[in-house]
Design a protein around this nucleic acid. Structure first.
Lengths: 241, 241
DNA sequence: TGACATTAGTGACCGAGTGTGACTAATTCG
DNA sequence: CGAATTAGTCACACTCGGTCACTAATGTCA
């Protein structure tokens, strides 16, 4: 990203890229890409473009262009860093100059992007997935963006079916439950989870089973929202927080 | 706002302000202030500073300053337009140049602010409360900001007790229910509302009663959150939207 | 002045939703 | 073959939320 060539090819980017000209911009667009790895959520970081940077890793970012909408820029930056597009993006937060940005920009707009499990970063070592509790030192503004993005993701979780964007097209219900447990940060009861999922008509079974290791094989499902249960519920003051 | 003098005094601002020098900025901070008027939610608009503007009204805004944090700028702009500060502010959305802004700025960051019922705009006719369904023509980006702010407010409604920020310090439960009904856009059942409110320990009664017109006088309450009901609930897929 | 309308506030019922444990099913491993 | 492991379902108890019905306290008006 930044002044690196925008190869759309997923791999083959030269490991020794032309060192970019460091330029200061007023406004940057930064992308926080999440994907699950096992029971942990990971975030994509790329090697700092500036060799003199205080931190060796940073979020994918670029200066905002006046001829490009913000969400288009976020999609472009994600594609540039990952080789493939994110399955879902959403604006998270704008932050100002009270926290240091690797590009020394005055203001930044952070985007959240979800990537299905199993998507590898492009080869070449310029980008890697880091578990949330093993993030290397990054600029303070980038660190705050990761936290905000995680909060936004959890908030979005019970507003729209974003969990499916972290899974491949077909998946087992145990996989789906695991994603929810990772995002919510707590265990869920199997029976409750499946009962609620069934009532919402969000998935449909396909005629395929998968056996991973030992144990009974699991049926595969696909995301296929059917009806819109217009359940008008009361005011739940008690889950305010 | 903009180049008008920042009088902190609520009134007495000269009606004939010095016409501001029109300057182009890359980034603006815009504030959507809400307050209830009866059964309707209203938004604060100010007269366009530029006499040649396409629209006569606009949201309070100012160019972003590199030496000021974004939320501080939003608070300043709100105070400048209203004479008093907002009871609660929150960043809503950043938008780009695909929608026209009255200041022709490339990018904008919108903030939402809540103002307790009964707060008047400063005299002088430069600012007025407009019901949401009677908003005069404003620039497209400002129109979109109002919609986004309303969406954010409704989303925030069941995350944190924001409804109390739209009420004076003491209020009746009927007033509180009315605020919720305005924000949710639907009627609530009295018994259900009070039961849930009681269970959440968010308000406490004070030894005062108010009689408005006919009917039994209502007891006054004050916002005083007590316990934090840590009700761990299951996954509610059915209210996904 | 007394019936009535109006607003405030509470109690109780009932069905739907949720937490939980226990059960069956199908596979791998030894 | 039996134990271990993972998938999937059932049933029970309990809570929560929608609703109706009732009481309480005031103003209005004939």
């Amino acid at each position: 990203m930044r002044d690196r060539p925008q190869t759309t090819a997923p791999a083959g980017r030269p490991a020794v890229a032309a060192r970019p000209v460091i330029r200061r911009a007023l406004l940057s667009v930064d992308v926080v890409l999440f994907t699950p790895h096992g029971r942990r959520l990971t975030v994509l970081l790329v090697r700092a473009a500036d060799p003199r940077a205080r931190e060796r890793w940073e979020l994918p970012w670029d200066a905002a262009r006046t001829d490009e909408a913000l969400d288009v820029a976020a999609a472009r930056i994600a594609r540039s860093a990952l080789g493939a597009g994110a399955a879902w993006t959403r604006q998270v937060v704008a932050s100002g100059g009270d926290q240091r940005h690797p590009g020394e920009t005055e203001f930044s707009i952070a985007y959240l992007g979800l990537v299905p499990a199993g998507t590898p970063p492009p080869v070449g070592g310029e980008a890697s997935w880091f578990p949330l509790d093993e993030i290397p030192p990054v600029a303070p503004r980038h660190r705050a963006m990761v936290d905000s993005a995680l909060g936004m993701l959890r908030l979005e979780l019970d507003q729209s079916p974003v969990a499916f964007r972290l899974l491949p097209p077909t998946f087992t219900l145990s996989q789906l439950q695991e994603v929810y447990e990772v995002l919510l940060g707590r265990k869920l009861h199997k029976a409750s989870f499946r009962r609620a999922l069934h009532a919402a008509w969000l998935v449909e079974p396909i005629d395929e089973w998968r056996s991973e290791g030992r144990g009974r094989p699991a049926q595969l499902f696909r995301y296929a929202p059917k009806k819109r249960r217009t359940s008008r519920r009361g005011v739940r003051f008690d889950l305010l927080g």
